[in-house]
Simulated scan of single mutants.
Amino acid sequence: MNTSTELGHFSTDLPYLAFGSGKPLVYLAGFTMTHTVPQPGAQRRTAARMVAPFVAAGYQVYWTNRRPGMPVGATMSDVAAEHAEALRDRFGTPVPVLGHATGGSIALQLAIENPEVVSWLVLAGTAHSLGPVARRFHRDLLEAAGRGRSAMHRAAPALTRNRLLQLLLMVPLWIAGRFDPPPKDHSDMKAMLLAEGAFDVRGRLGEVRVPTLLLRGARDYLCTPERFHETADGIPGAQRVEYPRSGHAITTKPAFFHDVLAFLEGP
Rank of each mutant, 00 (worst) to 15 (best):
G73L: 02
V97R: 09
V79L: 13
A107N: 09
I106L: 08
G104W: 00
P71K: 06
T75F: 04
H83Y: 12
M76K: 01
F91G: 03
D78G: 12
S105P: 00
A74M: 03
E85H: 12
P94C: 15
G73H: 01
M76I: 06
R88D: 08
D78S: 13
G104T: 00
G73Q: 03
D89M: 10
G103P: 06
V95F: 10
L87Q: 10
E82M: 14
T102V: 14
L87G: 05
S77A: 15
A101W: 11
T75W: 03
G104A: 00
D89K: 11
P94G: 15
F91H: 06
A74Q: 01
A107D: 09
S77F: 03
L108Y: 06
S105Y: 00
A74H: 01
G99M: 06
V72M: 08
A80H: 03
H83W: 12
G103M: 07
P71L: 05
G73T: 00
R90I: 09
L98C: 10
T75Y: 03
V79D: 01
P71Y: 04
P94Q: 15
G104H: 00
D78A: 12
E82S: 14
G92N: 03
E85N: 09
V97C: 11
G104C: 00
P71A: 07
P71V: 05
M76H: 01
A107E: 09
P71N: 07
G104S: 02
L98V: 14
S105R: 00
G73R: 00
T102S: 13
A81C: 04
M76S: 08
D89I: 07
T93R: 15
G73A: 02
G92A: 05
H83N: 12
G99A: 10
H100S: 12
M76N: 04
P94L: 15
A86R: 04
A107M: 11
G99S: 07
P94D: 15
G103A: 05
S77C: 06
V97S: 10
G92R: 04
T102I: 14
A81L: 06
P96G: 13
G103V: 07
S77Q: 14
